[in-house]
């Protein structure tokens, strides 16, 4: 596991000069980018089993080919309004909870996955300390793309915050 992580890191180092792929998705009107390495797959939400008593971020659990996987709604930690009746079925990103460990995954609900794009490291600008509202801590950079900014998601940060929310629990 550690080796894998190291490998990934090494790979990332090597990729530093080259472009890196990002999954680009939309959530609450913003565009986000997440390293494709961390994303196992994208699912259309089928049936979600609610978990009564869990924090509001936890939408529920799904059956991912025989494994029970929790699915979180990022809108709540991001302070975005929750759309009770979305126009179209949202998608779930299945993300490795830890980089390089493909046995434990978490689902993240997003409005729509639009693209997988390559950006070079130079294209990633440092994120502003302010101005993104509640989203600020979860963004580790900005990418200018088609006259708009994509927010580069710091997914480890997301998971650690989700874990602490769950810890407070119920």
């Amino acid at each position: 596991m550690i080796d894998l992580t190291a490998d990934d890191a090494a790979e990332r180092d090597r990729d530093r000069d080259r472009a890196q792929s990002y999954v680009v998705f939309r959530l609450g009107g913003e565009g986000y980018a997440l390293e494709v390495l961390r994303v196992q797959e994208v699912l259309d939400v089928l049936a979600i089993t609610e978990v009564p008593g869990a924090s509001r971020c936890l939408l529920g659990v799904i059956n991912l080919r025989g494994h029970v996987v929790p699915v979180y709604d990022l809108r709540i930690p991001f302070g975005l309004p929750v759309d009770a009746k979305p126009a179209r079925a949202p998608s779930v990103l299945i993300v490795e909870t830890e980089a390089g460990n493909d046995s434990e995954v978490t689902g993240l609900l997003v409005d729509r996955v639009s693209d997988v794009l390559e950006f070079s490291p130079e294209q990633v600008q440092p994120s502003p300390q302010l101005g993104l509202g509640k989203t600020t801590p979860f963004v580790r950079g900005l990418i200018r793309h088609q006259d708009a900014f994509l927010l580069v998601l710091d997914v480890d940060r997301v998971f650690s915050v989700l874990a602490s929310i769950n810890g407070e629990g119920v």
């Binding site: 049936a47 089993t49 978990v51 936890l58 059956n63 029970v68 929790p70 769950n166 810890g167 407070e168």
Partner: peptide, 27 residues
């Protein structure tokens, strides 16, 4: 029985989850 995963251990009321015959998850 499947574990609910680390994030949900705080929820003592559920001891795990299982997948029912129709493929849905049940706590």
């Amino acid at each position: 029985i499947q574990s609910l995963g680390e994030g949900l251990h705080g929820l003592g009321r559920f001891s795990g989850a299982t997948i029912l015959g129709d493929g849905s998850v049940s706590l």
